[in-house]
Nucleic acid binder design. Structure first.
Lengths: 126, 126
DNA sequence: ATAAATCGCTTACAAATGTAATCAAAAAGG
DNA sequence: CCTTTTTGATTACATTTGTAAGCGATTTAT
């Protein structure tokens, strides 16, 4: 059985950087994050890195004085876990109402609708 | 601007009961919850009721000695908020990958697929 | 009427989370 | 070489969350 760590909201941002960019130094991660949102404080990011290591969501190897961090947790699995969790909490685990909600609420472009329909067709007639 | 309260995971369960059943006494809520999961402790539920009142997610009126609680927060709005939040955190706000994930990962029954397709068609040709 | 159950109110307390600051060692710049 | 910067480690601290227990008033059952 896989041990999918529980990743908090803010920690997700850090994980996303690592999943996207692969092995990174703390500095790289901080750069990537402040890029998107200047409010990220370097010290805060360091704290999260430490916590993620403790949770075994990531690991590092020394590279000179600094560390090179890399994900341990698998992105797809974390996504699945978070998704199931959300689905359960908000929609009692029922997929259809959830999809309906998104399709209704967020305006989908015609192309998005086409693409989704293609997806459904693939699933529909295997 | 609406003030949509921040509802925690466990508090969601309480809210769902209130949204589903309308005005309820604490006792009713506790019953409903323990029905689904015997692990709910009455005192714990009371705590959440108090916190939800403090957050103005619910309110109550006296009914004899007990209280009759009812939702203040609108379900649809809370659902939207939680959904946007989840979408942003896990899928960077991109709807298509999210929908794809669910359609791919969770097996949809043929009827669910048909229904979803209908939904998309309604959206597709207004 | 007296004891038991129930109510809401108040208080408790650890873990998780967000948000950093301090500190010591090491590296880099001048 | 000495100063500034950088880095990881350690420590701090308020807030939120999960999970209740205690207390005093009030019903309710006996």
């Amino acid at each position: 059985m896989k041990n999918i760590p529980k990743i908090s909201e803010a920690e997700w941002e850090v994980m996303k950087v690592l999943w996207a960019k692969g092995p990174c130094s703390a500095r790289d991660i901080i750069l990537a994050l402040t890029q998107g949102d200047p409010d990220w404080h370097p010290k805060t990011v360091k704290t999260f890195l430490g916590r993620l290591v403790a949770k075994k969501a990531i690991a590092f190897e020394r590279e000179g004085r600094a560390y090179l961090y890399h994900p341990l947790a698998n992105r797809a699995e974390c996504v699945s876990k978070a998704s199931e969790n959300f689905l359960k909490r908000v929609f009692d685990g029922a997929l259809r109402p959830m999809l309906a909600h998104f399709v209704e609420n967020r305006k989908l472009s015609a192309s998005e609708i086409r693409e989704l329909r293609r997806l459904l067709e693939q699933k529909g007639e295997p």
